[in-house]
Each structure stands twice: as structure tokens, then as C-alpha cells.
């Protein structure tokens, strides 16, 4: 109503009285100046640095255009880094998606008292922000060589965790640590989708004689699928960019792509600055694809949540 009234005022006001000052410049030629500080800031500190890296990725060290740097990303050590990063991100995103979805289902639809849900949700808000160095320290105290759980397993059950080949400072140890911020993130982003499963639908299905399995197979799963897939991609990107946790756990010995780039910035370990730019551009490309797909899937999923 308010907007309609304002529009009407805008149409009729000039004939009867001078327009109020806030409308006078409504189509002012200089209005765009108001957005200039923001546009200048983002151009200078976000777009220009990325542009610099992108152009550098397609140049020889002496300045000419080349695709050689992009081709060099297929060199064994770099390809191995990407492959390790992708596998770790996939594993951690998959575990996070399944665990987060189960937990979200349990607290949203599981028939538990509502305080459980608010406790879990609040805790998730904290835990999804509890990443980086302190998280690594907490896991070292838990699953490190003299961590609480490692020692308990040894003393109580005679089970030597590190004898099985497990190490906190290797692939599965990292995946397990990532879960600490992946599972809460999944819970937070997938909860609206689970809430969107309206009770009417399951009642309607039941009154038509559908079993619970049939309901989930034909209604629940198809409605949830875009959300869950989108959240999986968000978790994938989240894991792919993780660096501080890895450094605090492994001290840059575990060469995922962010670590390799970190070392390249520190000391040009690739002996080719332009290959470093290509490495960075490859990271942006992977992040951009997974985040764009996430946003598209989320837009699709939101159709059911109105």
C-alpha cells in the first residue's frame, strides 16, 4: 500500500506543489555516483587482483599470450594436487551431506522435543564458524597420537588406532576434522527444505494408500533432491578452499591445491610465476562452477518452499 501511495504522489505532486526534495532528483543523472565508492572498492580489491591473476595465467613470463600454463596444470605433481583436493572435498562433502541430512531429519521431522532442535541449531551456528586453527588443536587433543580417544581406545580396548593405518594427519583424518564444520553447515542450509515437506503431502499420500517408503520414493526424495545436491556442492566448495585447518594439522606437508599455492606464494616452488597464476585460476574455476550450480539448484528447490 505504501508504495502505491508513493507512486501516486510521484505522478500527481508536480502539478499541485513542488516535489518534495527526496523525489526531486529521482531520475537524477548523478545518482550512480552514490554507488561509486562500493564499485571502486570491489573493482580495486576484488576484481582487479583476480583479473591480474587471470591475465597472468595466459601469459609467458616475458609477456606474450600462451596456453602453456594451463596445459602445465596437467603436470604430474600439480594434477596430483588437484586430484587430492577433489577427492578430499568429495569425501568430506559426501560424509557431511549424509551426516548433516540425518541430523537435520532427526531434529526437524524425528518427533523429538523442540528444545533438542533449538539446541542443535544454535550449536550448529557456532560450530560452522569454529573452523581453522583452534579446530585443528581440538582434534589433535582428541585423535592425535596421544589424544583422548586414541589413548582411551588403547587403554580400555587394547585397540591401536594408529596401527590400523589411520592418522589424523592424513586423508581420512582431515575428512573427519572437516566434518566438524561441514555437518553443521549442511544442517543449517537443508533445514528449510525439510520444513518445506508439508505434512499435508504425507497425509495425502497416506490417504491414497501409499506406504512411507512410497511417499519418500515418489514425493519426499524428488522434492528434496535439488536442495540436497545443491548443499553437497556448497560443502564441496567449502572443503576445497580450506587451508588454515590443513596447515595447523599437517604443517603444509599435505599438498592439496591451497597448500601448493600457499607454498608458491611463499617461495615460488613451481619456478614459474605464471604457472602459479594458472593454479589460482584453476581454483577459482572449480569454486565458481560448484557455487553457481549450488545457487541454481537452490533457486529450483525454493519453488517448493513457498
Amino acid at each position: 500500500m505504501t508504495t502505491i501511495a508513493t507512486d501516486a504522489l510521484e505522478e500527481t505532486a508536480p502539478r499541485t506543489a513542488p516535489r518534495p526534495p527526496f523525489l526531486r532528483g529521482a531520475r537524477g543523472r548523478w545518482d550512480w555516483l552514490g554507488a561509486l565508492p562500493y564499485l571502486a572498492f570491489t573493482a580495486l580489491f576484488m576484481v582487479a587482483p583476480v583479473f591480474y591473476l587471470v591475465t597472468g595465467a595466459f601469459q609467458h613470463p616475458d609477456g606474450g599470450f600462451t596456453l602453456q600454463n594451463i596445459r602445465d596444470l596437467a603436470a604430474p605433481n600439480i594434477a596430483a594436487s588437484y586430484w587430492l583436493s577433489i577427492r578430499l572435498s568429495l569425501a568430506s562433502a559426501l560424509i557431511g551431506t549424509v551426516a548433516g541430512l540425518l541430523l537435520a531429519w532427526a531434529v526437524v521431522l524425528g518427533g523429538l522435543p523442540s528444545w533438542v532442535r533449538s539446541a542443535v541449531t544454535t550449536f550448529s551456528g557456532v560450530a560452522s564458524n569454529f573452523a581453522g586453527v583452534p579446530l585443528a588443536f581440538a582434534f589433535i587433543a582428541t585423535l592425535g597420537r596421544i589424544g583422548l580417544v586414541t589413548v582411551l581406545l588403547r587403554d580400555l580396548f587394547g585397540f591401536n588406532l594408529y596401527g590400523t593405518g589411520f592418522s589424523l594427519f592424513s586423508f581420512w583424518g582431515l575428512a573427519l576434522t572437516y566434518l566438524y564444520f561441514q555437518m553443521p553447515l549442511m544442517l543449517l542450509v537443508v533445514t528449510p527444505a525439510l520444513e518445506g515437506l508439508k505434512p499435508d503431502w504425507s497425509e495425502a499420500a497416506a490417504s491414497l494408500g501409499a506406504s512411507r517408503f512410497q511417499f519418500w520414493r515418489h514425493v519426499g526424495a524428488p522434492v528434496l533432491a535439488p536442495s540436497v545436491l545443491g548443499c553437497f556442492l556448497l560443502l564441496f566448495a567449502n572443503a576445497f578452499g580450506t587451508l588454515a585447518t590443513v596447515i595447523a594439522l599437517t604443517g603444509s606437508n599435505f599438498s592439496v591445491v591451497p597448500i601448493l599455492l600457499f607454498q608458491q606464494i611463499r617461495g615460488n616452488v613451481l619456478y614459474n610465476p605464471n604457472l602459479g597464476y594458472a593454479l589460482a585460476v584453476g581454483m577459482i574455476a572449480i569454486m565458481a562452477v560448484s557455487n553457481t550450480l549450488y545457487l541454481m539448484l537452490r533457486a529450483r528447490a525454493e519453488r517448493w518452499q513457498r
Binding site: 562500493y38 580489491f45 576484488m46 587482483p49 583476480v50 577459482i284 569454486m287 557455487n291
Partner: peptide
């Protein structure tokens, strides 16, 4: 403006600071 505000989500910090340093 909204797109620009979301861009940092696809630029990992290590890439951002790399660009800044250069």
C-alpha cells in the same frame, strides 16, 4: 551490487591475497 557482494565466496582467501600481493 549483489553479485559483487557474493564474489568473495568463490575467491578462496589464498587466491585473493595472491592477487593483492602481485
Amino acid at each position: 551490487v549483489e553479485f559483487l557482494s557474493l564474489l568473495p565466496l568463490i575467491i578462496p582467501p589464498v587466491v585473493l591475497v595472491f592477487g593483492h600481493i602481485r
